[in-house]
Simulated assay, not measured.
Amino acid sequence: MAPETLEILSQLIGFRTISRQSNLELLDYVEGLLVPAGATIRRYNHPDGSRANLWATVGPEIDGGVVLSGHSDVVPTTSQSWTSDPFILREDGERWYGRGTADMKGFVAVAILSMMKAGKRDLLKPLHLALSYDEEVGCLGVRGMIESLANEPLRPAFCLVGEPTGMRIATGHKGKTALRACCKGQEAHSALAPNALNALHLGAAFLQRLQMRQHDIACNGVQDLAYTIPYTTIHAGIMRGGEALNIVPGHCEIDFEIRNISADDPGKILVDLDGDVEAILAPYRDRFADASITIEKLSSYPGLDTPEDSPIVTLVAALLDTSLPTIKVAFGTEGGLFSQGLDIPVLVCGPGDMAQGHKPDEYVELSQIDKCAAFLDRVIDILESPNSGRIFGHVQAGPQ
């Protein structure tokens, strides 16, 4: 790992940029590195001004070029047992430990240094850096930046999202829809429970329907064998309800998600769940007219499905000097938003392993950082190449 990369990564880890908290100090630090390197900087602020996206460009302000996309936020460390302070970078052999080393400040550190290097080169196509906030809670922050960029006349040729893939080329990931089912029953003293309608029981019936839908999808639905779990998944993560043991609860909430492969429409699954809700409530309609189960959408982002024969795959494979087959990843990214919002091809490729992310003693291996740095050096080389216009025109015009 280059000393400059280590210093940048150490600083990035030191910023406690938990999702929904401020990332402004981190962005100030990044600007302090990139502006002297000749980068032009724009920020896209959250409505309350507490955090922002950053868009930086080195090279000419023209069509084409590459976007390096990463997020600045990390998941909390609360209740996790770490060997050392998660916000102080720690070396142990060939591993570097700290919150966000794998997901995904390791990539961001390499991307920042690459921007600084590119600023010293005579680029013929631009290199962009997109840093977003609140990615870990549904890719929320990046949307405003993409919407603004979509209204501009210039377009990058393609986007590389640097989430950890072990520096393998990932052409796709599932979409995600986060939802909440609000169950309304009727309260009573628990001694009179048969005269009431227990909202937890409604919630339990709803959970059973989710399990039935999941079983049907797994057995009979469309599959994409490029994924470890090759079908759309339905998962319930949180259930809330009840105030005291001697009160029949009148309200219950269940937070659940749908992670869909590209062949499945989460909207169709929701229509089916609406039918399940009616079936659950039907036996209670005569006695409890106000009983209900309402489903609200909390957040969503689209999946990514870049064709394997896309010119961007060929180009990035050559730059990585790899003949390994492409993969699809289980976790979500902002890649689908960039693909749909800017109508450009997108790949996911970054250092580290997501198996290390979100865990105590998260780490990234030095060899992965070095491989990413060498890859981005070659990206800069083609941005400076006299053939860059032909290369990027081919990528941009290729199948998406």
Rank of each mutant, 00 (worst) to 15 (best):
V346G: 01
R285D: 05
V346C: 11
E308G: 05
I280K: 03
T306A: 06
Q340W: 00
L304Q: 08
D290H: 11
F331W: 15
A317H: 09
L320V: 12
L304G: 07
A330T: 13
L342P: 00
G352K: 06
G332N: 05
P311E: 05
S339P: 00
L337Q: 14
G303L: 09
A330L: 11
I295S: 08
T326F: 06
A318Y: 03
E296H: 12
P283Q: 11
V313C: 14
I293F: 02
L319V: 12
C349V: 15
A289T: 12
P345S: 09
G303P: 09
T314Y: 06
L315E: 06
D290T: 13
T314E: 15
P345V: 10
P311T: 09
I327C: 10
P307A: 06
L304W: 01
V316Q: 00
S292M: 07
I293C: 02
E308V: 15
G341A: 07
L281R: 10
T306I: 08
E334P: 03
I327W: 03
L342V: 11
V329T: 15
T306S: 09
F331S: 14
T294Q: 11
K328C: 14
T294I: 10
E296F: 00
I344R: 06
P325E: 14
T322P: 02
L319G: 12
E308N: 14
D290R: 09
S299K: 07
K328Y: 08
D321L: 07
G352F: 02
F331M: 09
E308M: 09
A318N: 14
A355Y: 04
L342Y: 07
I344A: 03
T333D: 00
T306N: 13
S310I: 08
K328I: 10
D353G: 08
E296P: 04
E296L: 08
I327L: 12
D353R: 12
T314L: 10
G352H: 06
R287S: 13
R287W: 04
S339I: 00
V346M: 01
A355Q: 13
I312M: 14
A317W: 07
L304E: 05
P325C: 04
L315Y: 00
